[in-house]
Nucleic acid binder design. Structure first.
Lengths: 221, 221
DNA sequence: ACCAACTTACTGACAGGTCAGTAAGTTGTG
DNA sequence: CACAACTTACTGACCTGTCAGTAAGTTGGT
């Protein structure tokens, strides 16, 4: 999908097939556009955010943006991929940790998120939009949930052992993701919601129930 | 803005100034439009849903819709108010219960929601959209959260007694709302998520932690 | 010179909203 | 009851604005 852009190295023995050589500053230019697009899609949503607004932030026209990304939808896809990479880069240990460390990581993330409201808003708006018909970000959101769920479920079983059933672990994993996302919405609308504290409390609650109440019947059922 | 509609009582000493009365079938017509609008805004979102699509469902033109509601935004507001009324009407006991019964009610709601995906989708899309700049539904969503939070927090304290601090009750209330909303998003995107079971599990977990762990330090903090 | 990186200029689709006109319903008065 | 005087409930044409996307031309780096 995405041919990588090397600086330096003129590559004398180029692949000869498609020979398009971007300029040196192009990589940074694309990154600027990506940042602007993330901001616009984050604050206005994908449908409501315009290419013109994205372009204006980097001082070009909307056609200039299309030159780099081809279409609005392609831009969105790249924004999503770019954000994934950025997220991972923030993690020093390369990838998301497992076991008990994962839960500490989730709480840390919530704490960090208070300082990057824009990112959270973008995630929230896009996730909400994604459940509409034929939304281009639907696949991405779905994948994200699926992966996250399996990672969290694995961590739960790693901590709780085989006593925790697959179903229970899956339920708890969904609940943890859900409570994180749901609290973000409330926090975005109302600062008086204490995002980190509520997140920490909820994750602990769900986790301890998953580990302790393995076969306990549900009083609310 | 809107003078009430009395049947009978011709009001012989009428003010003579403003004299307008809607026709008999108008109430039902407006209700039809409201239903159509709820469906369109629910599946497409407010920004992306068009008046023409709403109009088409009731067999009139978009100008006809505007005749009844004045503007798209006014239509949205009425949809929201109408939905509130419909929700309350479904409750036989008139208003939302308190105490332990509230939590059973929440789980019942989750179970019901599986059978009314459209409503849930509408709520999810609108809530997500509402965090964007100057969204017309923002106030409504915020109010809804605020009221729900205080009701759930009150129920928690009713069940747990004064041992549960205001802060803890507020946190738990936010978490319960959050997990319900967050799970709905996952369920809408992926049917394999068991909405009622996961909701019941999470509410129980959060509730029992709120009641039990009054002053327990947070291991994840 | 060549070509990436643009801009300018434009198209076609679609949005919400306004407006004049029309048909049907309602009401007051004789 | 009858009928004029009015209102309601629309339609359809139109306006303005915005959008993504395209095509062609210009500029400047290598």
């Amino acid at each position: 999908m995405d041919d990588d852009v090397h600086e330096s190295a003129p590559a004398p023995a180029a692949p000869a097939r498609t020979r398009r050589r971007p300029r040196a500053a192009t990589t940074e230019r694309r990154a600027e556009i990506l940042r602007a697009a993330a901001h616009t899609f984050g604050t206005k949503g994908y449908k409501n955010g315009s290419l013109a607004e994205v372009a204006e932030q980097v001082g070009i026209t909307h056609a200039g943006v299309l030159h780099h990304f081809g279409s609005k939808e392609a831009l969105l896809v790249e924004v999503l991929e770019w954000r994934d990479k950025e997220d991972v880069r923030h993690l020093e240990g390369q990838h998301i940790p497992g076991g008990a460390e994962l839960f500490r990581h989730l709480v840390r993330t919530a704490r960090m998120n208070v300082e990057r409201r824009g990112i959270v808003q973008g995630y929230t708006v896009l996730t909400g939009e994604s459940v509409t018909e034929n939304h281009p970000a639907r696949g991405w959101v779905l994948d994200r949930f699926t992966i996250l769920r399996s990672e969290i479920a694995a961590a739960i079983r790693e901590v709780g052992g085989d006593a925790v059933s697959d179903e229970l672990a899956a339920r708890a994993a969904s609940a943890i993701i859900g409570v994180m996302d749901g609290l973000q919405v409330q926090w975005l609308l109302d600062d008086s919601v204490d995002l980190p504290e509520a997140t920490a409390f909820a994750i602990e609650a769900i986790l301890s129930s998953a580990l302790a109440g393995v076969d306990r019947p549900h009083p609310l059922a």
